[in-house]
């Protein structure tokens, strides 16, 4: 890894801070994902990684590339927006699928459906 360009010390500290924050939030999310007992609780754990896990690492990368190439690098914002918009969609779809399956099996822990849906 000899390609690390020299950037000011405060920049390096900020990059390191955001990197560690993002990575440890992702790890905590994954640990919780393993430890929580039911599916509906587990659905909360990955959002740690996708909110500030992604946010921290993208911030670190933006600071680093902006300082080392002397121009604004904004690719990370695209990835960040993309992930913030797509994660709720996948989680919601999965949760609805899980609800549907649990209801079809008559699982007592799940609230029943109030009404039949109009479409879809």
């Amino acid at each position: 890894m000899g390609l690390v360009v020299d950037i000011p010390l405060w920049g390096a500290i900020a990059v390191a801070f955001f990197l560690i924050v993002g990575a440890s939030l992702t790890l905590i999310g994954a640990i919780g994902f393993l430890r929580l007992p039911t599916f509906y609780e587990r659905i909360h754990a990955p959002t740690l990684g996708t909110s500030w896990g992604i946010g921290g690492i993208m911030l670190a990368s933006m600071i680093y590339f902006t300082l080392s190439t002397q121009r604004f690098v904004l690719h990370e914002i695209l990835i960040g927006i993309f992930v913030t918009v797509t994660t709720p969609v996948t989680l919601m779809l999965l949760a609805r699928a899980a609800l549907h399956r649990d209801r079809a099996e008559g699982n007592p822990d799940v609230p029943g459906k109030a009404h039949e849906e109009d479409g879809d």
Partner: peptide, 28 residues
């Protein structure tokens, strides 16, 4: 609203009922 609630850790949006205009959330 669904994006906000799902992307804040601790609450997840499960289902919106068009007829009753209620939403089912799961809270940690």
């Amino acid at each position: 609203l669904a994006i906000i609630l799902t992307s804040t850790p601790g609450s997840a949006w499960l289902e919106y009922d068009q007829h009753d205009r209620t939403v089912l959330l799961h809270v940690l």
